[in-house]
Design a protein around this nucleic acid. Sequence first.
DNA 1: CGGCATACTTATGTATACAATCGTGTACAG
DNA 2: CTGTACACGATTGTATACATAAGTATGCCG
Lengths: 211, 211
Amino acid sequence: MASPIHQRLREDVLASVFAPDEPLTEAKLTERYGASRTPVREALQRLEQDGLVERRGKAVVVRTHSAEEIIDIYESRIILEQAAAAKAAVKATALDHQLLQALLLKMQQLDPSDGRALAETNRAFHSQLWHATHSPSLIGLLERLDQQVRRYTLTTLTYPGRWPVVLADYAELLAAIGDGDPERAGTIAARHMSDALTIRLKMYAEDPRTL
Amino acid sequence: MASPIHQRLREDVLASVFAPDEPLTEAKLTERYGASRTPVREALQRLEQDGLVERRGKAVVVRTHSAEEIIDIYESRIILEQAAAAKAAVKATALDHQLLQALLLKMQQLDPSDGRALAETNRAFHSQLWHATHSPSLIGLLERLDQQVRRYTLTTLTYPGRWPVVLADYAELLAAIGDGDPERAGTIAARHMSDALTIRLKMYAEDPRTL
DNA sequence: CGGCATACTTATGTATACAATCGTGTACAG
DNA sequence: CTGTACACGATTGTATACATAAGTATGCCG
């Protein structure tokens, strides 16, 4: 399914290699990745369907999201994360729980100033949680949403005082999942994501460029 | 975005023109739609990403879902429909509300035995409701889920006694949306979708082929 | 008679040539 | 000076030829 150039192009887009208004001409990408137009076109099409790029007139450009769009995506994600946490509380296996515990432990030992590591491990934790639902459709929907905003690397994790709260939330969440309490797990997850949105909005208010 | 052959192929897949095990070779589709392999390949790729077809070994075949997968998708949809109804109660404009009312009226005047018309109008109602949220992400997620199971035309709408309940549910839902009551709207939508799942499971228990 | 290796057929993956279209710049007219 | 029309250039859309790999049938060996 995933061709090598599709992956490379996606990573480059997510890493903001291309400017928001820079046209991703097939010729340019052809040269960059050393492949012919056919696989390049296929990769572009996939990214378009994933919502990572869009056609502007004839050209394809990296897709940007307005503050409203990001809020909208966030709100949908709150819904889905709540549902996922609740379902994980019911469906998670002992292995799922142990893997999540291991990730949490790892996060507790990270350097809180290393934003990159924080974001990376945090993503892994979420992904693991999604998989603990054993619900392919939920996983698919959440991955889709996540990917659309992944380019906005400015996470809320480095916001002053946020990281310890995140760790506490996760510990609490795992406890609820361990107890098989879907309602509590869902509530915690919803509050957690809702807080993240609040912080993001605060960050945006302080400096709109951080969007 | 949507090329003509992509649309045609999708419609054919949704209309079960191809057998579940029939390999959709590019040559065959090339001949069927009178285009060359390039656009055919692009269409196949899109349908694959939409979850309508899948690669089995080298060949591409229509994707089928097990009972478990359909239940899983349904459960995710319950979540999203509840969220959408709640959000519509907050965001719907007067025009949205009128359009929904008009659709409901149309449904009330339909012949309850015309399963095809029921399914079609019902889908239109849902779609209109989604759009009343004015949330692109929610709309996108719901459309995605819907498309994945649209091929299983056996809707619950023709189940004995179901249709009047559906109409009553929708009337109640519109009242809640008109009152701007997100909680009530969400509850009604969730119950409605949950009932649909229950009926579907009952139908499946009575005759597993109806899946 | 059965299993495995090998050659062949067929379908997909890739590259490239050709066609069509869109955007742009320029020139001319008002 | 501005607006419009036309022509040219660049880029994407389509078709096809070629390369590669997967699946299959056949024949030989155990």
